[in-house]
Amino acid sequence: MRMLKSILKVRWLSSLAFLAVMFIITGLINPDFFTYSNIIECFNSSVVFTLLAVGVAFVIMTGEIDVSIGSTMGLAAAIAGMLAQRGESWALMIVYSIIIGLLIGLVNGYGVAVLGVPSLIFTLGTTGIVRGLVYVFSGGKTTENFAGSFTNFGSQTLFGQITIYYTIVLVIVIITHLLLTQTRSGKYFIAVGDNVGGATLIGIPVTATKIVAYVLCGIFAAISGVAFASKYGQVNIVAGAGYEMSAIAACVLGGISLSGGLGNIAGAAIGAVIMSTISRLLVFIGLSSDFDNTIKGVMLITIVVVDALMQRRSAEAARRERLVARASGSAR
């Protein structure tokens, strides 16, 4: 029990353990799953979710939320698709998506951090606006017929069947993870989510930190849109709808607390693999992938409830300790 507790304390390690358990259970039900390429494919196919989850992780760590990432991804994907139809370069697509992500992130950050609108409501509003823009840009039609070099790029493998995409994403994950845990300003995100008042008192720029979190989140979401367009070869007008739930669930599964202040990028990346793997595993188990969203929702709620109960218990214990200490001064 004590060992279990100490493993659970390192939250991203327990998500890694959870992923391993999922693989093992699937393998026990259907031994066909246990091939090298099947398992590697689980990671390769998680590129889009990983980028989304890493981005939104910044926002969740500061104690806020961003539900507009699905539509941001959709918009960036549609624009990348249009550029791909004309055979434009990768660099241009990345530049465009960075601009899109930056603008959406600034709007969200301004609304939440400066105007003080509840983040769920504000980003829900941006979701509507951005999704509307997707319709405007694509004329209500699916964007397709991309240049072959664009769609082939993602499936090229580097070593041991790992795609170029996943390699790039892995490098990004490792770099952001280190930036967040090892640098001064990286820790600001956690600090703001952990205790806003305390952060203000030691001179951390709370508003700026939150805006930066939203900008990073927007940029990551937009870049994931490029990956999406390349991976699927076509961009539907509703592309990315519902992805925000998977990305947020990935963060929570990876040990990032929805109340902020707890978790890291590595956890979000592992959570993203879990999320993108579920439908694949369902097929191996012999269940319909129609259960996909339901299972994701159940997992999200289960973890959030457990997390909330634990947080409430420790907050209540701390409050009582304070009150008892206050009254005990006179008891002596």
Binding site: A191, D194, G198, L201, S314, R322
Partner: peptide
Amino acid sequence: VPQEPMLFPNM
């Protein structure tokens, strides 16, 4: 030093 200490509980 505020009345209720303002530490970051998770750090």
